[in-house]
Nucleic acid binder design. Structure first.
Lengths: 335, 335
DNA sequence: GCCCGTCTTTGGACCGATCCAAAACCTCGC
DNA sequence: GCGAGGTTTTGGATCGGTCCAAAGACGGGC
């Protein structure tokens, strides 16, 4: 017993399938009594339009594919929220795919997306394999959100101004009186920009000599290890600016483990203003990228590009805001 | 310039579209040289099959809808991983939808799923509106994972044995010497079962009199507030078993705020073994539900049900394991 | 009563795949 | 050279919608 089709509805309502189609699409030119009859038939039969049939004939799916790098790192939640809100307003659905989850399975997600003929693709955050996006971008309107790479011809970018945000955090630490400040860097364009912001701020305040950079990998583990290395230096830093909140939590653990009090003995700042940083027990000073806004704007850019695929590439940066919480304070001793 | 279709490929390879279709579906009865010609044409044209057309004629989408309650609560990540792995082996894709994200928009996700004609639905965790699942379950094979409600005729359940896990945690605390033990409960079937396990364990050890239950809501905030209430009692508990890790993190903050050391002055145990609990800085004692396994089994049950929609409902419980970390210890003083 | 214009409804082509019965092609034995 | 029997290939129907040109209904003016 198959689900009812538009023809079943038409038969029940005593009209043609074309008229049912008109009602479904909300046409003005259907007489009220016919409309009522059709709606009643739909209700009685429990009819649901078949999305596959519809997108086959409409030549669009009303679906946008969102490519994430890792569901475990929660920074994207806000972004997704904004993205979803705006896309929903335009009648588009969101299809989520986690690159990390699927890569292990040898699956090419951009391929899946092109087979599904999604109307657009949003790549969220630093991807493992940015080049893979190129093939997708050739076929379907594509937008990158929350990071600035890859830079591809027809691909818009919407992201926080990472360099500026990194300056904000660094200057906050300098303003508190810190001189020996370390940065735990991360991979990818985002990591690069945040490091650059850190270095620029330090340089401008004549602190280039005391600036230290350790490499992390955007994970808690990486943050922990980098901090252990930092704290074993002869001149240990009095403040650490971490590339993201996850890394900062790792730093927090390392500090605690070596008996340092935060922020008394060591100030820590993170980035992303994830809910992690808002957990009372962590309460990290961090930088907010207005991710919800990034998401909304990404949606808008994608809609624009769907409208006009040929439009020139845009780069859209949101202004980050410092979120001062419990992990930063003036240095205690001889600084 | 539209993407190439199966007919374009056929023309290029000098065969009929039916033959191309055979090659695409990996038929044995195609002569090697024709197969090569077709594959070459596919490659040259960059042909990708149209999923909508395929599922329209095959009458299945090879897609499974996964309904989540809240992307912000990370306990489901492992589960999803297991689910995805098993489904992918059977050639099925996963479509993620976050109920919380979408409900705000007044969108009925089960409706979206039925319009897409997904081959199956997996509801993960306690849903906001469990009744909504009923309509989906009537139309499409459905499975509930990670919780035990709702109980519906044709809907299989795969979950951790919450009552047993709660006993494990409670008995661990009792074994350490605690007598005044509190529980912060949560809503839904999961909350109910964990509370029951806690109460049963307390009763069996003759501690029913000193057992206290405060209501939480599965969030950090709820855990914090419940703990503040607990700690303001005349006889404050020496240990708290929280319904999940998020709640436990809230409890941790409340304890710290009132100057109690964990685990010295107050022991805390959570539930779910999320990555939160594994953060070095939190390092919560918690209960592991073998979520990866729950996910894999849920996938298997769904595949079984797709095969035979009429089969009787099954309930599948995994055995939880206690994960002892840094937030539990023997009580300090007069207990 | 007829013609014309507007509003509403309809039948049939189409989207791009799968599926199946029938056609075409081989090979072999006589 | 022909027919049987097996393998390989093909044309056309089908899935369930949208779209569009044309048909039908209706009202008003002459």
């Amino acid at each position: 017993m198959r689900p009812p089709t538009i023809r079943d509805v038409a038969a029940r309502a005593g009209v043609s399938k074309s008229l049912v189609s008109l009602v479904l699409r909300g046409s003005e030119s259907v007489r009220p009594e016919k409309r009522r009859a059709v709606l009643a038939a739909i209700e009685e039969l429990g009819y649901r339009p078949n999305a596959a049939a519809r997108s086959l004939s409409e030549r669009r799916t009303r679906t946008v594919g969102v490519l994430l790098n890792d569901l475990r790192n929660p920074w994207f939640v806000e972004l997704l929220d904004g993205l979803n809100a705006r896309l929903h307003d335009s009648g588009l659905h969101v299809l989520l795919a986690d690159g990390r989850l699927n890569r292990r399975l040898g699956q090419d997600l951009t391929r899946t997306f092109t087979e599904l003929r999604v109307d657009g693709v949003v790549a969220v955050g630093t991807l493992q394999d940015p080049a893979a996006l190129r093939t997708a971008a050739d076929r379907v309107p594509t937008v990158v959100a929350g990071t600035r790479e890859p830079e591809l011809p027809g691909v818009d970018v919407i992201a926080g101004d990472d360099e500026r945000g990194a300056r904000l955090a660094t200057e906050h630490l300098i303003g508190l009186g810190h001189r020996r400040i370390a940065h735990i860097a991360g991979r990818g364009a985002v990591g690069e920009l945040r490091r650059r912001g850190f270095e620029a701020a330090m340089r401008e305040h004549g602190l280039a000599d005391t600036a230290v950079v350790e490499q992390g990998d955007l994970t808690e583990e990486g943050g922990y290890r980098a901090t252990v290395r930092l704290l074993s230096r002869r001149q240990r830093p009095t403040a650490v600016f971490a590339v993201n909140d996850m890394t900062c939590v790792g730093a927090l653990s390392a500090a605690e483990e070596s008996g340092l009090r935060v922020p008394g003995d060591l100030s820590l700042a993170g980035y992303d203003n994830t809910y992690l940083s808002r957990l009372r027990h962590l309460w990290l000073t961090t930088v907010d990228n207005a991710s919800h806004d990034v998401g909304r704007r990404a949606a808008q850019r994608l809609l624009d590009r769907i409208e006009d695929p040929g439009r020139p590439r845009t780069v859209d940066l949101t202004v980050p805001v410092l979120e001062v919480r419990g992990t930063t304070a003036a240095p205690s001793g001889g600084g």
